[in-house]
């Protein structure tokens, strides 16, 4: 078994008030790990904790052994160098063209000459099918294209770990399938570890090696494992409903009367 690159131990996540309690899981090297759960259950929140935007209320998170909170500044900086992030809203810089956006991390973290940076950025844009739009500003492209440009930017430094918050939301099925292919290729060819939040069941079956499922009512995790196994042997009613895309079952009048 591969070594763990991210370990989350008994984490309480939230903004001042806890939203998720007792979350523990680990992500191993070179796997595609999916965080699942209904809207508002805290998927983005847990991602924010892992990438160090929010301090854990309790518990510990280690990225390749380094902590962002709880250690010294050097340790935090080391932990941050390991990963790239695509935010749910894209978070592209509006005053820069797409090419310049992708160049930002290259300028601050590498010593490559300018034409090398440009070529590298263009190749990243090509990977998400946006090379023709290199000179466009984010305000001039569509929502799905912004999302893809954000993915290109998160790939610029070839990080060991890639965090994606709903990468395929707002993409058409074909583009979304291409994105799945890209993610698989990154894992296979570049040994990248990918942690992503997504709701797309087809995409989950296509790419996910393992997943963790969060729930709002339980205020914590309710399942972890291989998606297809969870689908075939769901440990609880909630998990079954999620994988079968059933709406939450309301009690019938008869049941209420009893």
């Amino acid at each position: 078994m591969n070594q763990a690159v991210i370990t989350v131990t008994d984490l309480t996540a939230g903004y001042g008030k806890p939203i998720l309690n007792h979350v523990s899981f680990e992500v191993r090297e070179g796997e595609i790990f999916v965080i699942l759960g209904g809207s508002g259950c805290g998927k983005s929140t847990i991602l924010k904790h892992i990438i160090g935007l929010q301090p854990p209320l309790s518990g510990e998170i280690r990225i390749l052994g380094d902590r962002i909170f709880g250690g010294d500044a050097a340790e935090a900086q080391r932990a941050r160098r390991h990963f790239g992030v695509m935010y749910q809203s894209g978070a592209l810089f509006g005053s820069m063209t797409l090419l310049e956006n992708v160049c930002v991390p290259l300028e601050s973290f590498t010593a490559l000459p300018p034409d090398a940076r440009r070529l590298l950025a263009l190749m990243k844009l090509e990977q998400v099918g946006l090379k023709e739009y290199a000179t466009f500003f984010p305000a001039e492209i569509s929502g799905g294209m912004r999302k893809r440009a954000a993915i290109a930017r998160s790939l610029a430094l070839s990080p060991q770990i890639l965090f994606l918050d709903e990468p395929s939301a707002g993409l058409d099925p074909i583009t979304s399938a291409e994105l799945d292919r890209l993610i698989l290729r990154l894992r296979d060819e570049q040994r990248m570890t990918v942690v992503m939040v997504t709701h797309e069941l087809p995409s989950i079956y296509a790419v996910a090696d393992r997943c963790v499922m969060l729930d709002r009512e339980a205020a914590g995790m309710i399942a972890t494992g291989v998606p297809s196994e969870l689908r075939d042997n769901p440990p609880s009613e909630k998990v079954r409903a999620f994988f079968n895309r059933e709406p939450e079952r309301k009690k019938t009048t008869d049941e209420v009367m009893k």
Partner: peptide, 11 residues
């Protein structure tokens, strides 16, 4: 192992 930077170098 050839990462993104390496690919860019080859290209």
């Amino acid at each position: 192992f050839l990462d993104g930077t390496g690919e860019a170098f080859v290209i």
